[in-house]
Design a protein around this nucleic acid. Structure first.
Ligand code: NAD
Ligand code: NAD
Lengths: 264, 264
DNA sequence: CTGACTTTGTGCACGCGTTCACAAGCGGTA
DNA sequence: TACCGCTTGTGAACGCGTGCACAAAGTCAG
């Protein structure tokens, strides 16, 4: 169990569980370890980064509608957050607003794109061209946003060579070569759960440092690889929890319950 | 703009931004408003709920492999969290472990399922049977986990009546009737962005109280409706941010940078 | 029955993220 | 130029979630 770590995704923060190896160097309470250099704007909370992406989308929509400036209040409402949080989020990337006026839409778009690293294109590889893989490959929303899908992989010989969304499927065994050739920086795993870890290892071996995982599996990756997961079953179960909570609440306020079980 | 609220999803907590109407009742600092009754086990953090769903999946896998008991350490490792967090999470739902031994897998599964409301089936309706809708409808993982997909809707007349994943597509105009008949409790939105809000409103009108949204749009819903969103573009952009951060770090430690721009 | 060992459950402290509240700053107006 | 109103940017407080560390509680060997 050399390098194992929880995925960064989902709700709530996920601070590094502990030093991966060399448990405790000295029993001194950890002070500021970073040498204060290279400490730039690195302190953006992950939650804020995710919201910046949302702001960016809203701003793009506003720009298409011809808006020149926005106030934090407007933008916040459109993005579904309160204005204080929005301003704090924007303050992480700098001061690009004009007091008494608001923000220039174009400027804000540019700065957020810069922070998110969207000035560079990020080639995406999809592994596992089944139900979900097909949907992803056919989806037009990624290339348009700077994430061209430039490689597809599957193990099924019937699929290899077949074009999906205009791009022919490569065999999984060629993953290293193809990823290198096409400078893939993000790998998307859409294989069945049992294959996910193997595919992940291959992606890492191929030099891919960012992975988006759709398989309901906890992936083990080295520290330098970033994993985010999308787990639809978890999403549904969280919703289910809220249904149950609601039902309980209703029962409790009506006094209609026996030993914790709702009586209909 | 009567009832508008941010989506509950993604990273970080999202406490109710403010009383929806009737801004301040009294200028007294809010004390414990809940009458202390119906205060049961309601205090489970959303982040913990999401993790419970993960534990449940891991436990199911363990049970299939014939495991009878697990320690918090084992389960935590398998789920990608540290054991303290896991025990804390489990403590929210009660004390079902045996000190010195661990947890009975079967008991834990049962209790988590009870808390998540999985003892009841939750019928799911998918709206928008395009690329993504097809994948969702064909996916076998939901029915097996207590989430039968029991209704499909689209506006395209060519699709209506066509069976997808063994279930014929209904017209969106029949949504209220069909949802009522089949007791749909969760709606999944997989339409193009412009249609999402309308579809959402129709789902709410049809009595659906939980919505999973794939369209990159901030939905406006009444307070009693729970929305979670899955935004793949945001996921990719967060990954992109980490790529950029990494590149910056590398450049900074090498001293290879000019005015904030990396020189290759 | 006793004692040693194992693992749970949790009180507490810390840190991060959210929210509040207001000074600072800018444009418009007289 | 001086004033006024509006909006940004942020210091500080608050609250929540995480992680630590240990007492409580159980098992098992002898
Ligand atoms: N389809 C959905 O809507 C949906 C929803 C939630 C989660 N998921 C998850 O997404 C993943 C994919 O789902 P799906 O419905 O597309 O499954 P699928 O069975 O339709 O497709 C899986 C594809 O992966 C390929 N594959 C298998 N092993 C491989 C390997 N080692 N290397 C490369 N390719 C390999 C298969 O040939 C197949 O084409 C699963 O883990 C599933 O649990 C899917
Ligand atoms: N396909 C993907 O991989 C992917 C990835 C990320 C996000 N998304 C998002 O998911 C959504 C669906 O994507 P897609 O690729 O499946 O799109 P799609 O165009 O393939 O399918 C959309 C479907 O919705 C139907 N529709 C349109 N208006 C409707 C209405 N008012 N009521 C009911 N149905 C209606 C259309 O007839 C079509 O069948 C989009 O919002 C997209 O941004 C998709």
């Amino acid at each position: 169990m050399a390098a194992q770590r929880g995925q960064r995704n989902g709700v709530g923060g996920d601070t590094p569980p502990a030093p991966t190896a060399a448990e405790v160097t000295t029993p001194i309470p950890r002070v500021a370890e970073v040498p204060a250099a290279r400490e730039r704007a690195r302190a953006i909370p992950e939650a804020a980064v995710a919201r910046l992406a949302v702001y960016l989308r809203v701003l793009s929509a506003m720009q298409e509608q011809g808006a020149g400036t926005v106030s934090s209040e407007e933008l916040a409402t459109a993005a579904g957050v309160n204005s204080a949080k929005l301003r704090k989020d924007l303050s992480y990337i700098g001061s690009y607003g004009t007091r008494g006026v608001g923000y220039e839409v174009a400027v804000l778009i540019e700065e957020i794109e810069r922070i998110l690293g969207l000035t560079r294109k990020h080639s995406v590889a999809v592994v596992g061209i089944g139900n979900l893989g097909h949907a992803l490959a056919n989806y037009g929303g990624f290339p348009g946003r700077g994430f061209p899908v430039s490689a597809l992989f599957d193990v099924d010989p019937d699929l290899v060579g077949v074009p999906v969304g205009g791009l022919p499927v490569d065999h999984i065994d060629d993953i290293s070569r193809v990823c290198a050739e096409r400078e893939v920086s993000i790998g998307v795993i859409a294989t069945p759960p049992p294959a996910a870890q193997t595919v992940c290892d291959r992606l890492v071996e191929a030099g891919v440092q960012c992975i988006l995982n759709f398989a309901p599996v906890v992936l083990q990756v080295p520290d330098h690889v970033e994993v985010r997961k999308v787990d639809l079953a978890v999403e549904l179960q969280v919703l289910s929890f809220h249904v149950a909570r609601r039902a309980d609440d209703a029962a409790a306020t009506n006094g209609q319950q026996v030993n914790g079980m709702v009586v209909s």
